[in-house]
């Protein structure tokens, strides 16, 4: 049996807007990935632990509350603490351009803002997954 790319799609923080996350989850499934969808209002701790138990290749974070500068880096940090050093972390949501370099420096591989075609996300994962 061949290796399947496994992706955790998670929404850290307190906003309940999961439309984008669900669209992305569906697109990733249609691209042949196994998507573990965990729903809304998760803590970075829950996300990192779920990533560990599911042994995912990718963690896709979606956030629309504005707390990305705190929660994305925290999730990356916790993943590393748990020994998940080879997981690709990507982010999405309403994230100002000015914040993106900071997030990348913190270990988020790429940030996808509204209007991104889902095919771009699929391609990015296929190219960068370890």
């Amino acid at each position: 049996m061949d290796k399947r790319i496994r992706v955790l799609v998670a929404k850290p923080g307190l906003d309940g807007h999961d439309r984008g996350a669900k669209v992305v989850a569906r697109a990733l499934r249609d691209a042949g990935f196994e998507v573990i969808y965990t729903g809304i209002r998760l803590t970075p701790e829950q996300i990192a632990e779920a990533a560990l138990q599911e042994d995912v290749n990718v963690v896709a974070l979606s956030l629309l509350s504005g707390a990305h500068n705190t929660l994305f880096p925290r999730a990356v940090e916790l993943l590393k603490e748990k020994g998940l050093t080879d997981v690709l972390v990507i982010g999405g949501g309403v994230i100002p351009d000015a914040d993106i370099p900071g997030l990348k420096a913190a270990g988020v591989a790429e940030v996808f803002t509204p209007g991104t075609p889902t095919s771009e996300i699929v391609e990015f994962i296929k190219t960068n997954v370890k």
């Binding site: 990733l28 499934r29 042949g32 990935f33 573990i36 965990t38 829950q46 779920a50 138990q53």
Partner: peptide, 18 residues
Amino acid sequence: YSGGAILGDRIRMNELTE
């Protein structure tokens, strides 16, 4: 069709994750 899957059972079990 795609060989992919959406695995959504954790949604109901997030408290157990901790």
